[in-house]
Amino acid sequence: MPDNESLVELIASCKKGDLRQQELLYKQFYGYALGICIRYLGNRDDALEAANDSFIKVFKSINSFNEENDFKPWFRKVLVNTSLDYKRRSMRFSEAIELTDTIPQSTHTSAIDKLSAQDILALMKNLNEMQRTVFNLYEIDGYSHKEIGSMLNIPESSSRTYLTRAKQALQQLLTTHSIYKR
């Protein structure tokens, strides 16, 4: 990740439409973007597509970004919204809606701090779509239940419920599969 000063310069260059600088920005934030998108979408291909769409949106609207603000939170919002849009779109047409709680599948038995990205993704796949999304939005990305309710078009109370269920399911998974046992 570039330091703040060089990031400001990089963004200023991107505002001029310099493709090389945009490429530099892309490569510096590629991991960050992919990490967020993959949490929501669950697989690399979809995540890359959503991340790239987000970068394109950023390049197109970077002139509206004020360098005095922090770039990462702004970019994070773009990534999260794009991921949700992507998910919504694909769900709309694939109609592969998961609604029921799934039975936890086995995960690699290891300590939590040793969990790899793949382990976590496998673990999260045991949650249903809504639980996983609410968990990501609330616990990882720091949105409030009110914001989540607006984003997902659900009542605030439902957001709380989904979060509780997600946590319970994860706890059960951790316990059942002795992930927490060192």
């Binding site: 990740m1 490429e23 892309y26 490569k27 590629y30 991991g31 960050y32 992919l34 990490g35 967020i36 993959i38 949490r39 690399r44 890359l48 991340a51 790239n52 939590i112 701090d113 969990l115 790899s116 990205a117 976590i120 616990e139 990882i140 946590k167 994860l170 706890q171 951790l174 992930i179 927490y180």
Partner: peptide, 27 residues
Amino acid sequence: SEEELVEQIKSVFEDYDDGLGEQGWAD
């Protein structure tokens, strides 16, 4: 365990670089 998991998720996905940035840029 829950807090620990959240921290691990944040840590793992904060910079999830699969080394394919070049390919991603090409896409």
